[in-house]
Design a binder for these strands. Structure first.
Lengths: 112, 112
DNA sequence: GTCTCTATATATAAAAG
DNA sequence: TCTTTTATATATAGAGA
């Protein structure tokens, strides 16, 4: 994806593959996080990587379990809307930091 | 992400949110597809969007079903060991933003 | 292995049609 | 709305420490 365009096929070199895998996993989790935050989409993911036996889950085990139950049973579960206090808090924090960054960067830009 | 940087918060405008949601879903599925192909990672995802009753699944319903069953059978302890919780993820994000802020502020300081 | 850097590919917000 | 286009932000392959 950068420097060189990558072939749409298994990366043969094992160490390159591992590095790529970790970078892409990170990117994927960010995408999920943003989709959930910006667009209010409910996601549940299990990822089995080749480098550990236990899977990665997102956003967390409970949600994954609940989403699966919902998926299996199809009748819509009424979901609690009152369990995001901490998440809201950290979200605000991130927003604020990003605004500060923007501001400071703009200040730099105007001096160049 | 383009033209303008987007705030890390729910997109208030409903039609913008929908457009963004669809674009991001598309991107996310592409990411999954590439991770699976390039790095031989097994993934299972359920995504409930606000615009249809049926969830999106990747790679397909059967794999999702099987993967989640497999996940359910893991002992709880093993499961939580490598869980990527959303909280952890946001903490990392905050840390990174703070580092950037520090760096940029230092740059400003050195010019004054 | 693990971080950082950075050039390039890609994703995507907003505009235009 | 939806598609297509474009400008910008972001992700990431490869390199170097």
């Amino acid at each position: 994806m950068a420097r060189n365009k990558v072939n749409y096929a298994l990366i043969e070199d094992a160490s390159k593959r591992k590095v790529s895998c970790n970078k892409r996993l990170k990117g994927l989790l960010k995408n999920f996080d943003e989709l959930k935050t910006l667009c209010d989409v409910e996601v549940a993911t299990i990822i089995y990587g080749p480098y550990r036996n236990e899977p990665y889950t997102f956003p967390n085990n409970d949600v994954v379990r609940n989403t699966f139950i919902k998926f299996k049973e199809l009748p819509t579960l009424e979901r609690s809307k009152h369990m995001v206090t901490r998440e809201e808090f950290t979200m605000q924090r991130i927003k604020k930091l990003e605004e500060q960054l923007q501001k400071v960067r703009k200040e730099i830009g105007s001096r160049k």
